[in-house]
Each structure stands twice: as C-alpha cells, then as structure tokens.
Simulated assay, not measured.
Amino acid sequence: MLKLPNSIVLAMSAVFGALVGVANIANAGSMVKIDGSSTVYPITEAVAEDFQNAKKGAVRVTVGISGTGGGFKKFCRGETDIVNASRPILQKEMDDCKKAGVQYVEMPVAFDALTVVVNPRNNWSKAITVAELKKIWEPAAQGNITRWSQVNPAWPDEPLKLYGAGADSGTFDYFTEAIVGKAKSSRGDFTASEDDNVLVQGVASDKNALGFFGFAYYVENQKKVKAVPVDGGKGPVNPSAKTVEDGSYAPLSRPIFIYVNIKSAERPEVRQFVEFYMKNAPDLVKEVKFFPLPVQAYAINIQHLDNKKVGTVFGGRSEVGLRIEELLKREASL
C-alpha cells in the first residue's frame, strides 16, 4: 500500500475538513423553522415528514410546540419562517410583526372541532350545555365550583378536576371567547399545558376529570378519553366532519392556520415546503383526523403567496362561529 508523506495527509485532511464544513453550512441553510400551536402540529409535522422524505434529506424542517401565542412571539421576532396558529393573528402580534418588519401570508389549512372530554368511567355527563361549561370555566368559578353537583344537581357530589390549554395556546383563547365570552377570561385553578398530550394523560388518569383540546387528539386517544356532546342551544351535538361542515357543532368549530413570513418564502426550500403543504394538505389533514378545506382554499393560499397578498382578513381579532364557506369568501376577497 502506498504511504503518503505526513505533510500531504495533513493537507488533504484540511481540505476534506473544509469541504465538510462547506457542506454542513449549505445543509444548515436548507432548513425551514416552524413553531406554534400544538393543535396544528400534527398536520404540519405530517407534511414536514413527507416533504423531507421527498427531498431525501436535502432540507431539514423543524416543528416546535410553544403554543400559538408563543409561536407568534418567535415569528414576529423573525426567528421562524412559519407559525402554526389555532386562531387568527391578534392586534398586538400584528403590531409586533410590523415593528420588526415581518410581513406574512395568512393561510387557513383546516377546520378543527374543539372537543370537550371526560374520563371513560364518567357515566353521568351524557351531554353538556354552553351555559354549564361557562359555569365551570368563568373566573368566578375559581374556588366556588369545585364539584360536579355544583354544575348540575343531577351529577354526583364528586370533585371536579379540570385540564385545559395553557395561556400561550390559541385553543385557550378560542375556548374562553366561545364559552366565557372573552378571550383569556378563565379560572386559573386548573392543570394547564400547551402540550395536548399532557391534557390527554390527565383526563385519562382521573375519573372526575374534564378537559378540552383539538379533535385530532381526541380521535387518537378514544380509548383513554370520551367526547361529550355540546349543546349550543339546539340540542347536544357531537364533533364530526358532518357537524363541522354544516356548522351545527357550534360554537366550538374553528379554522386553523399557518402564517408564512413573506421574506422567508423567497428562499427555495421554504417556498417548496409551502407549495408541498398546500398540494398535500387535503389528504394529510384527513389522515391526522382534522377536517380539510375545499381544494380551492389551498389554491387561494398559493395565489396569495404568488401575489404577495400579506396581512389578515380578521382585523386582529379572533372570531367565534365562523363557517367554512364564510372563511373562504373572506380569504378570496383579500
């Protein structure tokens, strides 16, 4: 075997190391950074997995779970390319993005049925009204409504253990606005988490528990938790594709979104990821147990990206009870 002088070996090692360094820098640049809602996470994570497989490792996609509010904080500081959001961007977040020079395209990706759940051993709450949910969750309930019988005298005199989304969660914002009447208005003595899996485990382990989270987490854990039909005034309704599409699962049906930094979208890997997302969303949304939008909605999202139609159609406010056709009409007119 030919033995090279040490000087040549060292030189070759240096060159090889430099080439590896260049390759690593290139690979580090081919990254799409995403953070935000744990509700939207299963959709975006499924898209990211398929996209990375299609790219054979040439692009890395990271998807974090810091809640919608936490996600917007990072996004409006320019730290991420895309934010997952289970509610529209709020005025303060719009102001923060504007100050930092971050412009964005709003893209609805699915509808969700925010699901109220109990432990499978709960054999008394066959349905629950919006009024009863408000009685449980409003700020005045803290320290006062602590037993099931205080909500409904037909229910047992057992302790009421509550699990819900954390304060940085868009799910928390939407639920409190829909049920209590004001976003973030809630009792504070409950187990809170931005990670829906923590909430699932909490309800699953306590016979007297009640909680709420996105529909996909309920479907994936039907052996651990049980959905409670919600009566919004027209009788109890179960969350399902049909009741979300026809608007009867009210007021807990809601659109969910991604927001794309328009400057990030100039990078090929981000642009390609968003295009891949919109092309494959109808199938992947259904695969992870959410409710896809009509195909034209995803085409509108790409048109908005092409035409750099930045901003939001919600005016900095979250809205309760928005139906799919109303959302599409509004987004199309942006």
Rank of each mutant, 00 (worst) to 15 (best):
N119T: 02
N84L: 13
S125N: 10
K99F: 12
L90H: 02
V47H: 04
W124T: 13
M94H: 10
E106A: 01
F111M: 14
A58R: 08
E45F: 07
R77K: 15
A127E: 10
V116W: 03
A131P: 00
N122Q: 05
E132M: 06
V118E: 11
V118A: 04
V61Q: 04
Y104N: 07
G64P: 01
E49P: 02
V102S: 05
V61F: 04
I65G: 00
N119W: 05
V59G: 03
V116P: 01
R121G: 11
G57A: 06
V105K: 05
N53R: 14
E49Q: 14
T68A: 06
G67C: 10
Q52Y: 00
Y41A: 05
N119A: 00
R121A: 15
T68W: 11
E79L: 14
T80P: 00
A46V: 07
I82L: 13
K55M: 12
G78S: 05
G71V: 06
I82D: 01
I43H: 01
F75E: 15
W137L: 03
G78C: 10
V47I: 15
K73M: 09
K98L: 10
F75Y: 08
E138N: 12
T80I: 15
T80V: 14
Y41F: 07
N122I: 02
K99S: 02
A113Q: 07
E132W: 06
G70Q: 05
D112S: 06
G64I: 12
P120N: 07
A48H: 00
G71T: 00
A58Y: 12
N53C: 01
I82G: 03
Q91L: 14
I136Y: 00
D50A: 11
I89M: 13
K55G: 01
K73D: 13
W137S: 06
C97F: 01
K55E: 13
L90A: 08
M94E: 10
A46R: 02
F51G: 02
Q103C: 09
A113I: 08
N119P: 01
W124Q: 14
P42T: 02
F75A: 12
F111L: 05
M107H: 14
C97V: 02
K98H: 04
V59R: 08
I65R: 15
E45P: 07
I128W: 02
E45C: 00
E45L: 14
Y41C: 03
I43G: 02
P120Y: 12
S86I: 11
A85T: 07
G71K: 08
G70H: 04
F111H: 01
Y104A: 00
K73C: 03
K74C: 13
E49L: 12
I136G: 07
T62C: 09
Q103I: 04
V109I: 15
F111G: 00
P88W: 13
A127T: 11
E106G: 00
L114F: 05
A127L: 12
K73N: 15
K135F: 06
I128S: 02
A54K: 09
G67E: 05
L90K: 13
K99G: 01
G57W: 08
A58I: 09
D95K: 05
G70A: 10
G101L: 12
Q103L: 11
A48L: 10
V105Q: 04
N84K: 13
R60T: 13
